[in-house]
Design a protein around this nucleic acid. Structure first.
Lengths: 257, 257
DNA sequence: CCTGAGAGTTGATCTGGGTCAACGGAGGCG
DNA sequence: CGCCTCCGTTGACCCAGATCAACTCTCAGG
């Protein structure tokens, strides 16, 4: 046990969600806004409607988006089949086009209404160089996203389907969950089919799985895109990645830290 | 077909390996060396023996390593079982400890003799801020590594075992392969068991798979850690990720670009 | 030279989840 | 209003790969 003991002494994972609910925009975004307030940025602000698509040509590796609000997903199609993974971005995230691998096709899709700032790489790097605080926040943000990618990879590679769904619910809770009474309500930004793709599961399998979670009283569904997580401790404890996801949250640049 | 047609008009993938063999240390490393030559860096150079371990405490998120030569792997253990993924780093890569997710344990292991520079995050960011060229190269390097992580995730999530092994062979070829006659010889930095973990496969399954590849004349094995890839076009064409891996190579900061 | 431990191989068996097919329900559009 | 299409659900079946167990190979140390 090399981990420093803080907070709850020994619970398998932190059992109470509320603390994690305090979301902050992130130091990177905050600093960016501060700079923008002082002098106009060399960037294009975009408002995206739900389902709006931004195709990314192979030559556009020099674009960078800063996501200010909403949820955006990146989709890359494989040469082979229709299969392909879906990556999610949340407010405060950096979407560097150069970091999205180029199979035969890649596009960004706004999963909800979203606001982004679009930068050209060259100007963006110059901006970073001019403000040490922004640079530091950016670097930490990138670390966080790389760690998230690694966790997601571990999720897909080593866990079985109930654990994957649990991890997804936890991630959603931490990123966009809203506490409502004893439950947490989540506005799903993705359709069932898309969630299945994100989790590298079959849509059929996911459907079965969701039914089982509902039968077990873990979740309930108000409408197609509205679900509520009834039993956080149970869901949190069924996925081995929970501690890592919570640690990620703790590392998030925010007033908390 | 939005992709610009360059080079070979239509071949399934680029069939010839030699071009990819021209490895360069990477613009980031080159710039770092240039700066270091002018004035000493605030960094600690380390020489690692094969199998040497560097434990990473949860509080050490502020360390950054620049890998100069050799191969280093990061291993994170899961709370749950013995399972865990292995991430590989190659010369020119940046190992930012903050980007390695913190499960219950994480360590770096030198897979070969390796040289690294160790930075404290604070000094490193200051260094980045002081040299625009270094900053730009660093940013591109991080993009590249994030893309690699995404490709690896796609590999583990969507491909079957022969395709995974093919992807591994291609990656190894591109990173550390040495052309020898019509074949490519590869000095495996990992044991069989470790390769299996890296590919999220069972060691038994991997063994069967390697036997099959050998029987099919795709590879041959001189000794335990020496294998040679006999039929590059066949291996390249059996994995849908090949184009993305090659594109990554093309994006690598190097004199070629 | 022998011995023992760890790495790798191979065969037999089992199962999670992928696949296919048929069906139900919701929403868009003429 | 009814049609049509797409999304989601459910059941039956099957296979890739995990698991378990027995065996071999390699190599270090005495």
């Amino acid at each position: 046990m090399t981990l420093r003991d803080r907070e709850r002494p020994q619970g398998p994972h932190r059992a109470q969600p509320p603390a994690a609910m305090q979301r902050a925009p992130g130091a990177f975004l905050a600093r960016l806004a501060a700079i923008g307030a002082a002098s106009p940025l060399q960037a294009t602000p975009l408002k995206l409607r739900p389902r709006q698509r931004i195709p990314l040509a192979p030559a556009q590796d020099d674009l960078i988006f800063a996501l200010q609000s909403g949820v955006v997903s990146a989709r890359v199609g494989m040469t082979n089949s229709a299969a392909g993974l879906i990556t999610l971005y949340f407010p405060g995230d950096v979407i560097s086009v150069g970091s999205i691998p180029c199979f035969n096709e890649r596009i960004l899709v706004a999963s909800t209404t979203a606001e982004v700032m679009r930068f050209k790489s060259k100007q963006f790097v110059r901006l970073l160089g001019s403000d040490p605080e922004l640079l530091a926040a950016y670097d930490r943000q990138r670390d966080r996203q790389l760690a998230r990618a690694a966790i997601h990879a571990a999720n897909l590679a080593t866990l079985d389907s109930p654990q994957r769904l649990a991890a997804f619910l936890i991630e959603m809770t931490l990123e966009i969950g809203i506490p409502s009474g004893t439950a947490i309500s989540i506005d799903l930004p993705l359709s069932r089919t898309e969630i299945a793709q994100h989790l590298a599961l079959n849509a059929d399998t996911l459907s079965r799985l969701v039914s089982r979670f509902k039968a077990d009283g873990l979740i309930a569904q108000k409408s197609r895109h509205q679900l509520s997580l009834k039993n956080w401790p149970a869901v949190a404890s069924m996925c081995p990645l929970t501690p890592a996801l919570l640690a990620l949250e703790r590392n998030r640049p925010s007033p908390l830290s």
